[in-house]
């Protein structure tokens, strides 16, 4: 987008509230969601499919919570692929701030511009250096600018500080960003927003209120079997079934870190690489480390599964 004119006209241009934010809908029905996500290799549970459909239909951000490794980030990627949209990702961490999340002025370029322009008035120079050209847009601003479809993924929201949540509120409820020197920049096309959280910190009620809430837990046995078969195509069907059953049994135990879908897939790959065609005590004992990440978990699971001495 090119900008001409002074400060005031720029602000006026941006202060216009978009009359029509209705982006073309991505999905026609819940079944459509499941089918098209499955094409990209993401098998969605009914809960996931329903909520994604609603997020698209109601135009609200989607807050996804769940244990690590159940495919929260994958979901955003799959939706981006289905929608043929650009995936804009904001990875949150402790200390992420406005200049990393929203926008930043390109100071070096501004200085260059000032030293390059010789015979012009101060007012002209000032209006010019605070124009779009010198604005570095960070993920949140990138996501609401431009007309192409976008999926905004705000990953591990719980890792960010509480102040950043305040920053997100304006973006998520009105899909706009206020730059004091420029005015308010509103989205011309609403992005599909996915926030993920591991619940290591309770997100504020204000943020939750603006989102649809989806908890992705561990999948049902049948679904997990299909996921394993899809991701590890070389694996024998009966072995896949046994793998999923063992993982299910481990999840029912009271462990420090229960294996997630990602670990199930890793384990299936390990078994495939080892050339195991059935599970027996030795194989399980030797590969339990792929599933369990704590030594006391390994010992406990070994005892419960009667693996003999470890």
């Amino acid at each position: 987008m090119r900008l001409e004119g002074g400060l005031r006209t720029t602000a006026e241009r941006y202060d216009r509230v978009p009359a029509d934010l209705e982006a073309p809908l991505l999905f026609t029905s819940v079944d459509d969601v499941s089918a098209r996500l499955a094409e990209t290799g993401y098998l969605a549970s009914p809960a996931v499919a329903t909520t994604v459909f609603l997020a698209d239909r109601l135009g609200k951000p989607l807050l996804v919570e769940g244990p690590a490794g159940v495919g929260k980030t994958e979901l955003a990627k799959a939706v981006a692929e289905v929608a043929r949209a650009r995936l804009v990702r904001l990875q949150c961490y402790e200390g992420v701030d406005e200049s990393r999340a929203l926008y930043e002025w390109n100071h070096a370029k501004q200085l260059l511009r000032i030293s390059a322009g010789r015979d012009e008035s101060w007012d002209e120079a000032r209006t010019d250096i605070f124009s779009e050209e010198f604005l570095l847009s960070r993920p949140l601003l990138t996501a609401i600018r431009g007309d192409e479809p976008k999926v905004l993924l705000i990953d591990e929201t719980d890792k960010a500080d509480v102040e950043v949540e305040g920053l997100l509120l304006e973006v998520l409820s009105d899909f706009q960003v206020t730059v004091p020197e420029l005015g308010t920049i509103s989205a011309t096309r609403r992005p599909f927003v996915v926030l993920t959280s591991n619940a290591s910190r309770e997100l504020s009620e204000a943020l939750r209120r603006r989102c649809l809430f989806l908890h992705i837990g561990f999948p049902e046995e049948e679904l997990e079997r299909r996921i394993v078969r899809l991701r590890v195509p070389g694996l024998d069907a009966t072995l896949a079934e046994s793998v999923v059953r063992v993982v299910g049994a481990l999840r029912a135990m009271d462990l420090r870190k229960v294996p997630s879908v990602a670990e199930t897939i890793d384990w299936a790959r390990t078994l495939l690489a080892l050339g195991a065609d059935t599970l027996d005590e030795t194989v399980v004992r030797d590969t339990l480390g792929v599933l369990l990440k704590h030594q006391d978990d390994v010992l406990k699971a070994g005892a419960k599964l009667d693996l003999g001495s470890l």
Partner: peptide, 15 residues
Amino acid sequence: ERLREGLAATLLHGT
């Protein structure tokens, strides 16, 4: 079941 998930997604804020 879809209705259940839909209402849960809109009404609830936590697991």
